[in-house]
Design a protein around this nucleic acid. Structure first.
Ligand code: MN
Ligand code: MN
Ligand code: ZN
Ligand code: ZN
Lengths: 142, 142
DNA sequence: TATCAAGAGATAATAATTATCTATTTTCTA
DNA sequence: TAGAAAATAGATAATTATTATCTCTTGATA
């Protein structure tokens, strides 16, 4: 709710730009890229620069406030949910969805499961599924 | 063994460059980047260009002969094993290992498990773990 | 062996991301 | 609450992984 408080709790300084960027990201389920956020913010924040969005999201990610996604596209996407969770990527239209949370819970222990089987000291993981989203699946079955 | 045969079976034309690139990739467990392959190949193949490696690996990946990895670094890596399998990425030194195959087998059914819980039509997946590799773990514990 | 599409290499172009620099804004404290 | 110190915003330029173009050469096929 209180964006300023959230930022401060993560050791981040509060500026109007940061508030706007965080709220735009937190307000969508689309896992937007920097450009996508820029286009969304520009109408209400004409002065905001692309560079600021890059730097801000980088700061947010370092602080553990957001997560950066690598989906095999030519740019990165961002997610207001920093917890490891599973993403579905449509290889036709590029859409990115969270896996249904019920289903994702079943994968929650995945890190602990693997921890015992590797010499690595694990701190994070990322799981991506690739395929056709419902609407692209429809189109293909014709 | 017979690289030319492998290439042809994947519908790829055979050239000395392609053979060299494929064998260099198949001969390492390091999941090299394009640059890394270039440096490795240059001594024996002075004429080979970076561009050719890019185009060749792209062709290999499209043909399903190799896999392109997105590890959150500023470049991509390639893997001579095109099957979905799990990777461990060291966030200190950048090393990338396969998860022990015994452990990975336990995750083999992960796609089928999720298939029932999503509207997506799944064709692939990628699982990355991030942490400290054995040697970096050592150094940290001092 | 001739044909012809595809590949190789040189070169230039793209485009996402980062660096630099200065004015402005936060934060902190006296 | 004013002022100092440090961090941020935005303008701009630079970087760099990757791709596009173009011409010459080569591999596949009959
Ligand atoms: Mn998400
Ligand atoms: Mn691998
Ligand atoms: Zn789609
Ligand atoms: Zn390491």
């Amino acid at each position: 709710m209180d964006t300023a408080k959230i930022l401060r709790e993560h050791g981040l300084r509060v500026t109007p730009q940061r508030i706007a960027i965080y709220e735009a990201l937190a307000g969508t389920k689309e896992h937007p890229s920097v450009e996508a956020l820029y286009d969304r913010l520009r109408p209400r924040h004409p002065g905001l620069s692309l560079n600021t969005i890059y730097k801000t999201l980088q700061a947010f990610a370092s602080a553990g406030l957001v997560r950066k996604l690598a989906t095999h596209e030519d740019m990165h996407r961002y997610d207001a949910n920093p917890e490891p969770h599973t993403h579905m990527v449509c290889i036709e239209c590029g859409r990115v969805d969270d896996l249904d949370s019920k289903a994702d819970e079943r994968l929650a222990g995945i890190k602990d499961l693997i921890s015992n089987d590797t010499d690595y000291d694990l701190v994070d993981h990322a799981l991506y599924f690739y395929g056709y989203c419902p609407s692209c699946r429809e189109k293909r079955n014709k």
